[in-house]
Amino acid sequence: MSERGHFEEHCFVSGHTACAGCGQSMAARLVADVAGKNTIVTNATGCLEVFSTLAPQTAWGTPWIHSLFENAAAVASGVEAALIHLGKLDSIRVISQGGDGGTADIGLQALSGMLERGHDILYVCYDNEAYMNTGIQRSGLTPFDAHTTTSPRGTHSSGNPKQKKPLVEICAAHHIPYAATASVGNPRDVQTKVKKALDIRGPKFIQIHVPCPLGWGSEPVDTIKIAKLAVATGLFPLVEYEYGRLLRVTKLPSPKPVEEYLKLQGRFKHLLKNAAELKKVQEVAQKNIEYYGLNSKA
């Protein structure tokens, strides 16, 4: 297919340098394709930026701008303000996106400002649960007991001692029209939520769980399977908030044991022979299931 033809079909195209099995690249294309051509994207520094725009090449078929690590939401706020000034916001959508570090840690302040000011922007966080671009360091969204290069397992450590920052709740607490989680393991759900978000005016937030074979120590071929298991075990609940209220969740009538999820990933392999730690991770899933009512009949 010609380069032009390629861009005609997708807004984010192959030829970039993401690792095999990269969940983020798959999710980014799902988002870009739903958003379509009349979209301006602002991107935080991170894997997605690095593997999609190594000068002089780009994988983006929509106007796209990268500035810095922590300011994608602020740059997007400026883009939206400019579109209002130009009278073009009715026909052009603004998407801001970053990884978990760029969103939940260093970019949280700019994101909160963007949400609080009510800009008409969809912010997408591709959550691969660590600073993958710099070499798998722990972020605020790294899950409990995961081994990373800065939360390593050792004789005195079973990996990351903290639980994931409740990012979607933090965003929902701004009482924005829409805040949701999604998983690349369920592409249709991702696209439904992105479409729903883009049809709403005002600030929207979606956190997409995206496995990282390199950082998670998993097989590239297992990316979708692992993403599905994170949801099926209750470790990554799929939820939707509107104006600060939890309105919908993806139900789990019979949640799978967390071991099925953990055993496919090198970052958790130290847990498999440690019943006490395994129990703690199961408790994390159980808490999620209860908190969000994932197994309730209603």
């Binding site: 051509k37 991107n43 930026e49 690095v50 725009t53 190594l54 000068a55 002089p56 780009t58 983006w60 078929g61 929509t62 106007p63 796209w64 701008i65 990268h66 500035s67």
Partner: peptide, 8 residues
């Protein structure tokens, strides 16, 4: 469409 702020 242009991409601005590429990795150099």
């Amino acid at each position: 469409p242009l991409s601005l702020g590429l990795l150099g």
